[in-house]
Design a protein around this nucleic acid. Structure first.
Lengths: 155, 155
DNA sequence: GTTCTTGCAAACCCTTTGCACGTCT
DNA sequence: AGACGTGCAAAGGGTTTGCAAGAAC
């Protein structure tokens, strides 16, 4: 079985965070996190909002945005800003320590893991006097074989 | 004397690029690049537009944006998207191969150089079958000494 | 009961676009 | 002359906000 995010652990983390920060537990916040757990990929705020609407969840755009913000603050979600598009989110626990390569020709995004990066990140923080939280490395590149790169015209 | 961008080289690169792509040389495009050369830091499109307006340059927002786009395409400029803000640009030649550490408390951005990153980038591209172009690494961290972190409230 | 959160729609900001005019080749 | 670039203002898309109603504590 594939390494699957343990949703219960994540929900616990979230409710601990809310309590600690004196924010309230609401069904909307809980529901947003439930739906996020169903994704195994990046998603945008609006994509999630539509998804929830399609499923009949009655959650407003404002609530989706604000909950995404909370989830990012407590590191449950990682927020990425690729190119010019809207922000994309994903569960931090989904694929720890991965980064992204973006094809500058077709926009395709490839995920990869490279453990040295975290080490470098910690070194840099140490040198500069910071406590590391997260990082986001985006490599912009073009594929050797242009035909491979065409595939995502539909995306 | 500090390592200063050779503006003549950069202008040559730009005019070569324009010619190659059959775009036209215009005084506006040239002027935009001249003004950029006066910055030794990140700037946003609007900041540049205001700067030019203050100096009496008659260049529209649309032209500023489109020229920034051209300059990014030919790698004269590097375009960054920090946090939720607008895009920030800087001359690639200004400080080659540097990356950014962003304080999640105060938003301060610290530049640093770490040569291993480029090597990793090239390795990753090699493995995945891509030709590297550029990269952008952002480290999110909090300073050990909170008092240091307060300084940019004014920014 | 008080304070925080939600939902809605309008506001907001950055960026892009359409069109008429100007200009580079 | 013709095609491309510019300026302006309006449109666009993603995100945030103000306010009244509702829910958590």
């Amino acid at each position: 079985m594939a390494a699957k995010t343990d949703i219960e652990t994540v929900k616990q983390t979230f409710s601990d965070y809310l309590r600690k920060m004196k924010y309230r537990s609401t069904p909307e916040r809980s529901r947003v996190l439930d739906r996020i757990a169903e994704y195994d990929r990046h998603f945008s705020a609006d994509e999630l909002y539509m998804h929830m609407n399609n499923l009949g969840d009655r959650v407003s755009r404002a609530t989706v945005y604000s909950t995404l913000d909370l989830l990012t603050q407590c590191n449950i979600l990682m927020k990425h800003r690729f190119q010019g598009e809207s922000a994309h989110f994903e569960l931090s626990s989904r694929m720890p320590n991965h980064d992204h390569l973006i094809c500058t020709e077709c926009g395709r995004i490839v995920e990869f893991r490279e453990d040295q990066i975290k080490k470098i990140r910690n070194q840099v923080c140490d040198t500069l006097g910071f406590r590391p939280r997260t990082h986001s490395l985006q490599i912009f590149a073009v594929c050797h074989d242009p035909s491979t790169c065409e595939y995502n015209q539909a995306e």
